[in-house]
């Protein structure tokens, strides 16, 4: 009886990100029945893929008890590199993007070796990324390579492409982080780093892997973004930093303790991507929209806290 109740609570907590998104979608459909079509959903989730990828990047960093305040600026830089070099000098462009990923892994190493607060390091790095992006591309411009543009605007019968892409991302990362044997070590680093080190694993390596993965998904986020917009802009993704953190938390993650959920993070990103539309349909002025998104976040977190407290009792 109590075990069943506990199971239900656990199930409820895991299902919360999905329930939140479902409620949001139902509200959108009620206000605007036209949205309930392939075209409507494609439009609503238009930017869901880059946001979901940035959220996954953030999730890797949060999983090892750090926070990345530079992901938005980083995604902006990636769009600039991609827009400027990929169509004309693809090899140079790919090299620069790989360099960006290596830089992320190096930041992870720096944070671990010098025991620095990640918030400070990544806040500093956000200015570095933004500065580099502005140097590369002082005014919005550049051009997405055709293959990228084609991929991001793929038409699939029946199901909107962004939803398929989000599903693929969720399944792949879920399998890699939650079910592979090395994924356990990576998450253990967030749960009890001392225990992981005492079992003979290198914390330096796990931190570098996690930051490297964050860089990789940041690059993917930037590529998918320019595939959608077809022009690059240094400040195009500034809001992604907060979106990604909110997405991880909405998806059932916690700031400390290695508690994350890739599937939840993708759902959280979809929720954030569609929340703006609902607020628009409700005729809430854009000035209030950010505040209203914050309110949604607080409501969901309160619900989660209530469920957890019930479980403890």
């Amino acid at each position: 009886m109590t075990a069943a109740a506990l199971l239900n609570r656990d199930l409820l907590r895991r299902a919360l990100p999905g329930i939140t998104l479902a409620i949001l979608l139902v509200a959108i459909f009620v206000k605007q029945p036209m949205a309930m079509s392939q075209f409507g959903l494609t439009l609503i989730f238009q930017y869901a893929v880059p946001i979901a990828l940035a959220t996954i990047a953030q999730m890797f960093v949060i999983a090892v008890n750090d926070l990345d305040l530079s992901i938005g600026a980083f995604v902006g830089l990636v769009t600039c590199i991609a827009g400027l070099y990929l169509p004309t000098q693809p090899l140079l462009g790919i090299f620069l993007l790989l360099l960006c990923i290596a830089a992320y892994a190096a930041i992870g190493a720096l944070i671990h070796l010098r025991n620095l607060p990640s918030i400070v390091v990544t806040l500093g790095m956000s200015f570095v990324w933004a500065g580099l992006a502005v140097l590369l591309l002082p005014t919005p411009g550049g051009k997405a390579p055709d293959w990228l543009h084609g991929l991001m605007n793929l038409k699939v019968p029946m199901i909107p492409f962004p939803i398929i892409a989000a599903l693929v991302i969720a399944v792949l990362v879920q399998a890699a982080l939650m079910h592979s044997s090395y994924g356990v070590v990576l998450r253990g680093t967030g749960g009890n780093p001392k225990a992981v080190a005492r079992a003979g694993w290198s914390l330096l390596k796990t931190k570098m892997v996690m930051f490297g993965l964050a860089g990789t998904f940041g690059v993917l986020s930037g590529l998918s973004l320019i595939g959608l917009t077809s022009a690059a802009d240094a400040h195009i993704a500034d809001r992604y930093t907060l979106y990604s953190i909110a997405g991880v938390i909405l998806g059932g993650g916690a700031f400390i303790g290695g508690i994350v959920s890739p599937a939840g993070a993708v759902l959280g990103a979809l929720t954030l991507a569609s929340a703006g539309w609902l607020l628009g349909f409700l005729h809430i002025s854009p000035d209030w929209q950010i505040g209203a998104q914050g309110a949604i976040l607080i409501v969901v977190l309160t619900l989660r806290a209530l469920i957890s407290r019930g479980a403890v009792r």
Binding site: R187, G188, G190, G191, N192, A195, G257
Partner: peptide, 10 residues
């Protein structure tokens, strides 16, 4: 020296 976020098997 256990990781509280992981299962017993993990």
């Amino acid at each position: 020296s256990l990781c509280p976020n992981l299962t017993v098997a993990e």
